[in-house]
Structure formats: structure tokens, C-alpha cells
Amino acid sequence: MTDTVRKRPRLAVFKFASCDGCQLSLLDCEDELLAVADAVQIAYFPEASSRMEPGPYDVTLVEGSITTPHDAHRIQEVRRISRTIVTIGACATAGGIQSLKNWANHEDYLRCVYARPEFISTLATSTPIADHIKVDFELRGCPVNRHQLLEVLGALVNGRRPRLPSHSVCLDCKRKGTVCVEVAQGIPCLGPVTHSGCGAICPSYDRGCYGCFGPAAQCNCESLTNQYLDSGTNIETLLPLLRNFNAAAPEFREASNRLEETAQERGNKR
């Protein structure tokens, strides 16, 4: 705007159980980084700056899932000092790859990994942020797409609704002219049940979609997995495809549990 000076919202970035990849996506916005710094005041972003200002914050980006009692408490504090909370990435929105422990005994893991497990305080599960606090906006992906991240920040700064479609990856493949890898090559692909956002990268490199952006709106996982099983894909391939970065997203979780039941039934028949 040329005639008035806008008040820049104060931005904070908090990390929970995660790999940092999503917040790095923000630093990865090389061409747009100056515009971002112009539009928001970066008040708390330890990965980017050692200058850490106290809250409250206008916009808080939260990366990572809740896996420890300490984090379960800390996220409440983050909510208290944040006006708008946007969770970023598969860990924050679905529990991440670490939610595989939801299917296991976490104490077994502790004993395997740590020499002195008694010093480790951890929860039995990895859960998304929205299971613990009210979240204003969720941004999917492993990692998030930086264009989508900029879209959300731009929308919040300018007081408009972010444009983030919830359709399947297939629509993006078709707009790009990418030929369906499942139909033309028989590669099991999660695209038909996966949320748009990545720009349909994998199928354009002859790979099936890994479901990094989690379930699309009203996805029909049962029909897709039935189709793959009937056309010869084995459960050993399909189960890890669903139990991945978004394993604990409800639609994928139910689909993978159902597959496991199918595997047991088939095993019993043998």
C-alpha cells in the first residue's frame, strides 16, 4: 500500500517433535524472504535469529507433534500467548512419522534406544497439535509447500481467506499433463486420496504419491486399497504407504488398520 503504513503482525515460530524441515521451508523462500520480512515482524524464530522477543504474538507457526508431558504443557502456553495459530506440516497436523509408535509399545522403544531409559519422560503416543489446543489453521505436508506457507502468511497479513484447495493430487497431475502412473504403469499411488498441496511432484517423476499431504477431503481409501489389492499389490507394499508421514491422520489410520485386518484374515485362510 502506498498511502498508509500497515502495522506489521508479530510472527513467532515454535518447534515441537519434528525435524525442522517445515520451518526451514520459510527460510527457503529466498526470493520472497524480504517481502515476508517486510510484511511481518519476526519476533520469535530461534532457527532464524538469536533475537527472541517475548509474546504475545499475532501469528504463531507451530511445527511438530506432542510426544512428551513437557510439550503437552508447553503447547498450552503457546496458545495463551498467540492470537492466531497455524500448525505447519504432517507432524503438527497428523502426528508425523513418529506416530508409528502409536501402534507399538513406546517403552520397548525407550529400552532399545536409550542406555538409561529412566531419564526419558515421554508419552505413549505422538498426537497432532489440534488434539491439545484450538488451532486456527492447518497447513499440511511433509514438508509444507513454501508457496502454500507464503499464501497463508499473505492471507493473514492482508486479512483475506487463504486459497488452499482440499481436493486430490489427481487434479494437479491433470493440470500439469502428468499421465496417471497407476493406470498407465500399475504403480500404487496415493494421489486419489491425498490432499493437494505439493504440486504433484512424485508422479511427474514416475513415482506413486506417498501421501505427504495427508488425506484429501472425503477421501475413499477403502475403494482405492481394495483396487490395489485386487490388481496384485501386496499388503506389505500398501501398509507402509499408508503408515507413513501421516500414519495417524484418521482416514489413513483407519485404512491401514483395515488392511492389517485383511492381512490377518488372509493369513488365517492359508
Binding site: 500500500m1 502506498t2 520472497e32 517481502a35 515476508v36 517486510d38 510484511a39 507464503l150 502468511l153 499473505g154 497479513v157 492482508n158 483475506r160 486459497r163 481436493h167 486430490s168 489427481c170 487434479l171 491433470k174 493440470r175 496417471c180 494421489g191 486419489p192 486420496v193 484429501a216 472425503q218 477421501c219 475413499n220 477403502e222 475403494s223 482405492l224
Partner: peptide, 30 residues
């Protein structure tokens, strides 16, 4: 029960013509 609602049929269809129009602003909104 079988339909994935994935949009594939409509996008390979040579007659389907639906589109949506959206305003795409940059970071400044200018």
C-alpha cells in the same frame, strides 16, 4: 462406494469444461 471423487474422469473427458476463477495476490497485496 467405489468412486474416489478424485476428479480423473472429468479431467480426461474431452468435453468437461468446468473451471474456477480465483484472485491470486502477491505478499504485498498490491
Amino acid at each position: 462406494k467405489r468412486c474416489l471423487s478424485c476428479t480423473n474422469c472429468t479431467l480426461v473427458c474431452p468435453t468437461c469444461f468446468c473451471s474456477s476463477v480465483a484472485e491470486v495476490p502477491d505478499m504485498t497485496g498490491d
